[in-house]
Design a protein around this nucleic acid. Sequence first.
DNA 1: GGTTAACATGAGCCGGACTCATACCACTCG
DNA 2: CGAGTGGTATGAGTCCGGCTCATGTTAACC
Lengths: 218, 218
Amino acid sequence: MTNVAGGTLRRRPAQRRSAERVERMLDECARLLDEVGYEALTTKEVARRAGVPIGTFYQFFSDKQALVRALALRNLDAFLGRIVARLSAAPPSDWAEMTDLAVDEFVAMKRTTPGFGVVDFGEVLSAPGGPAIRGTERMLDAALENNAIVADRLRAVVVEQAGGAAGPGLDRALVVAVEAADAVLKLAFRTRPDGDPDLIAECKLLVRRYLAGLLPRT
Amino acid sequence: MTNVAGGTLRRRPAQRRSAERVERMLDECARLLDEVGYEALTTKEVARRAGVPIGTFYQFFSDKQALVRALALRNLDAFLGRIVARLSAAPPSDWAEMTDLAVDEFVAMKRTTPGFGVVDFGEVLSAPGGPAIRGTERMLDAALENNAIVADRLRAVVVEQAGGAAGPGLDRALVVAVEAADAVLKLAFRTRPDGDPDLIAECKLLVRRYLAGLLPRT
DNA sequence: GGTTAACATGAGCCGGACTCATACCACTCG
DNA sequence: CGAGTGGTATGAGTCCGGCTCATGTTAACC
């Protein structure tokens, strides 16, 4: 699993104290994201709450985006970790069960993990302002199309679990499914802070129907 | 159709000159969005390019978000206008044709209209940072869940065109379909500036399969 | 104990969002 | 035709947030 230092940190924390500080900054970032959102989040406030001077903050994070990106990656790993854990604990017999499970885990994450789902993996993790950025250095390469990572890891699990054949079609379908599900789930939580159950159900349906034509039933 | 002044402007332009200025500001906003993205867009630069002093800018737009929101609404109206025009010119005989047509129009808009699709209707048009905003006045009510507007208008067209029965299930399905399609299409344009054709095709498939179970075939 | 390199700190710089005191203008009325 | 009046236009200036860098502090090694 990619950990927090996976290319997003300026300096990898060497001492235990530094590592704790980084964690605290990420924690406070998450809480602030829930409280005020991405735009209103300030690095000063994150540093203040984490009890870290602003200078030290910038020793570890090159900028505000890097902070949020690091948090997103941490959350992503937690999310995938939970899915993998549940899959190996009780392997589903069915495709539909498997995707339902993924949706349920997303919902559980959203309810318990501060800052989860506030930032759009696809948007924020790729370059600021999308691919149209010109004058500044592109920070793409590192994180371009990060939802593809979700799809990638899911694919590995999926191919292994269900014994389905891999292929470009499957890959694309998974990326699309993840992107669509992500959007609908975000809508569900925008509509209702605890997640509109109807929309969550509809999300499951969407993924099922989309994938139904494409995949074997194990 | 909601025009630009539909609740998003501080002051409605009375004279012709003012109206032109507002249009120019929106045009420049659109081009800047394509060039540098939302974050790097500055109100000063928009005003400068539009040949309008910054003070005047703020006479019409309460803040940066309001500007982008107004642009999004203008684009949305253009988009829906095109769909309605094509629908009445050559009514499709089929559900699938109709949704394909909507996707094609989205792609055409994206290719010809600066700034289209850069801002997420759902995200930017609702409150900054989602529903979790606390300290500041909420600007929800006006624009909460704007993708619902797309769905709404589509629904009207759809029910009329296809003679299908309206209902809460249909409404929800349309909102979900729009949200999902929007996300996948954005992915298509992030992957390739001119829109990845495979992903565009996959988007059509997604909507077809999702709606197939729900709707009559005319 | 002394030398050196890594790390920590926060005052301050730069620039962007947004305001407000002032100037300008169109129009009315005596 | 000039004074009055209410809306409109303007841009210098305020405030604040992202980010830096000169300086102070600690750790490590000889």
